[in-house]
């Protein structure tokens, strides 16, 4: 039986006082790669924010990487986020320090103390994203594609069960987008990491087909539940 990394039951998702997605029932298993698509304002980002604890779960039940979303508060949310990696469209790297320091900050912040182990882990993730020699650079000295790779490297530091990627190719050219997709897919396959990726890029979806969740009219439609032969 597959292990559920995300499980939402009868969930209503609110952005402030507005109900943006209703009656969400969803299960994403370990190692799955899932696209999250839909028009702007249909609730993609709200769903992701609920999954990483930036929006509170007000109605329904939800579990992410073993955490009960109902019990997560602003004080406990860091512990949820240590079990998942979040990749942003605008990278959100710490601009006041270089790549190596960015990654070391995350390790220190998440309880790592052994300097040798930290150095080894940083080299490991930088190698995975193909930027082993760029540790000394500051984020603003790097291209968009390189910054996105660093963002992914950061997400990999604590060997997360789940990576939530919010339009990670949104600011990138098609060639760089393709490189980032190959990287994410290889991570999903090699490390059995679940990836939920919000995107508008249908070229990417066509090239790397996977399960699709579509937000529309306040509902989520799941390609896993679509069976043409039964229509």
């Amino acid at each position: 039986m597959s292990e559920a990394v995300i499980k939402l039951e009868n969930v209503n998702i609110y952005q402030g006082a507005n109900l943006v997605l209703r009656d969400v029932n969803l299960q994403v298993n370990k190692g799955e790669f899932v696209y999250l698509v839909g028009k702007t304002g249909t609730g993609k980002s709200s769903l992701l924010k609920t999954l990483y604890g930036d929006l509170p779960l007000k109605e329904g039940t939800g579990h992410v990487a073993g955490f009960d979303l109902k019990t997560v508060t602003w004080k406990t949310v860091p512990f949820l986020r240590r079990t998942l990696g979040v990749v942003f469209q605008d990278f959100q790297l710490l601009t006041d320090r270089n790549v190596h320091e960015n990654l070391k900050f995350v390790l220190k912040a998440t309880g790592w103390t052994d300097n040798n182990l930290m150095e080894a882990k940083i080299n490991d993730v930088l190698e995975k994203v193909g930027l082993k020699s760029k540790g000394f650079k500051r984020p603003f000295e790097m291209s968009g594609g390189e910054q996105q790779r660093i963002d992914i490297a950061r997400a990999l530091l604590n060997s997360p069960k789940l990576i939530l990627a919010d339009e990670p190719t949104g600011n990138l050219d098609p060639e760089t987008s393709d490189e980032i997709m190959q990287l994410l897919i290889s991570i999903s396959k090699d490390y059995d990491t679940t990836i939920v990726m919000a995107t508008h890029d249908y070229l990417v979806i066509n090239k790397y087909p996977a399960r699709i969740l579509r937000t529309e009219g306040g509902k989520i439609y799941d390609s896993a539940n679509y069976h043409p032969e039964s229509v």
């Binding site: 949310v77 986020r81 710490l94 995350v106 912040a109 604590n158």
Partner: peptide, 17 residues
């Protein structure tokens, strides 16, 4: 403010931040 939020996003506790 964004620096603080990013630190929180990567799992840093409030005291660490």
């Amino acid at each position: 403010r964004f620096l603080i939020k990013t630190m929180q996003m990567v799992g840093a506790t409030r005291w660490f931040i």
